[in-house]
Design a protein around this nucleic acid. Structure first.
Lengths: 258, 258
DNA sequence: CCTCGATATAAATATGATAAATATCATGAG
DNA sequence: CTCATGATATTTATCATATTTATATCGAGG
């Protein structure tokens, strides 16, 4: 008997238990990406820091190694460990993405992720239509079915939404596109959250997703690209409406600076 | 007196000195992404491994933390540290990219990066045309001038090429696109290398780049997108010709599997 | 004003010891 | 024979401390 839902099919995606160093890295990482620890700022020495956190220096140092591996800090002898400039951050690292969106994220970053979706997802849909395997199509279908049975208002529905978009990137056959999954998934979730927050959901997202699925099913890249373009564009439209009901263009204008 | 070249303007991009843990992480990382350490394989315990490498357990453990932060390994008590499945690798991490391309990379991955270029760079060019600051335009121009004065046959020329594409992504104003710099830069370099390896360079890449620059200069997104599309398409064409002069479609077919 | 070298400081490395987690296997109930 | 349960062994995780190394800073000398 086949498992009916993705949830039960996948290897339990329960939040993996963080060890001590992981916890420390997450805490400091969140403070960095949220701006509480400004770039250029020098963290206190490892002796002081580890004492303050009540952990050993080993645990603290390993946390710093993790953060350094993600480009958030840089440490050199004598100078100390300092917070890196945002341009050095590995923004597409799954953990960094999750840290950024663990609280109210910077609207500019959110806009950047949405923009990335408009660039990447239509192309990924076209590739998926050309290359998808039968198994990948099945995964896509299961996600669609879960979307149909669950509302986006509940976590299960949002998870199904994420699964659909992740499965599509995976089906593109391009491992680098698949690596964008975490970022896209975060954008997908926040799109929904903003929609919920604003006006009541006018638009049922299911038909849009179904059109993408059907194009991928019949191996029609052009139709898949067009359907996904529509899906993303409409989602984006709803989002900007929900975020700025009056001043629609404010976000676009501020993003243009710098 | 302004510095004339990007090289001297930037904060010394000399290869940063790797510390011991960084060296270990790179060595093991390269062995993983090159397939010498197969996914699922369990690394020997930290005592044995550190002794074999003649380093302390601290250094070895910190190396593992780095690798874990990039999704290459996963370690749990009792089970040990095992190489993760490729789908878990953070392929867009700058270090992972550099490790992949430190030797003869997997053709499939190379093809994937090229494909990413065709998706991302035209869109980035269009955004850059709409948003670029004067400083960003100047950086782009300097890179173009360096390209004009140096041949792609020498490292300085390839560096200028990379700088051009990096500056363009930066000028897109989207931090997530800018994060793709390392990956795109690697693809740019390998495009050139394959060109050199094959037939002698028939096509001077400079005019293509200049057209992109001019479109960005006069803030013409559509033209910038078109020019970059041409640039990437032609570069790709040269590459596939150089790589597979006879069986042009072999790579595409094998990539379709799975 | 510049160069060179001493020095202080913080990270980097090493080592040993203990704690915690969990795969494995033996055991016993059904 | 199958499955649940618990003991056990192994491995990472953590802690604590000592030593080494890199380098920013500053001062003496040119």
């Amino acid at each position: 008997m086949r498992p009916r839902t993705l949830r039960s099919a996948n290897s339990a995606p329960r939040a993996k238990a963080l060890r001590l160093h992981g916890t420390i890295a997450r805490d400091i990482g969140v403070r960095i990406v949220s701006g509480k620890l400004a770039p250029g700022r020098v963290l206190e020495g490892e002796i002081a820091a580890s004492e303050q956190l009540r952990v050993s220096r080993t645990a603290y140092r390993e946390a710093l190694r993790i953060l350094a591996a993600k480009g958030l800090v840089e440490s050199r002898p004598k100078l100390g460990t300092r917070v890196s400039e945002p341009r050095a951050w590995h923004l597409l690292d799954p953990d960094v993405v999750s840290w950024i969106f663990s609280a109210q994220p910077d609207p500019r970053l959110l806009a950047g992720l949405f923009e990335l979706r408009t660039i990447v997802e239509p192309a990924a849909a076209a590739l998926a239509a050309a290359r998808r395997s039968r198994g990948q199509l099945r995964t896509l279908r299961l996600a669609l079915e879960d979307m149909a049975s669950e509302s986006l208002a509940v976590e299960a529905g949002r998870e199904a939404d994420r699964q659909f978009h992740s499965a599509l990137l995976e089906a593109s056959g391009n491992p680098f596109l698949a690596s964008l999954t975490s970022g896209i998934a975060a954008a997908v979730t926040w799109t929904t959250i903003f929609k919920q927050r604003g006006a009541p959901l006018e638009r049922n997202p299911l038909p849009d997703h179904r059109r993408v699925y059907e194009a991928v099913d019949r191996r029609d890249p052009a139709a898949a690209r067009a359907a996904m373009t529509d899906l993303v564009r409409l989602a984006l439209l709803d989002t900007t409406r929900a975020r700025a009901p009056v001043r629609k263009r404010a976000a676009a204008r501020s993003a243009r600076r710098r």
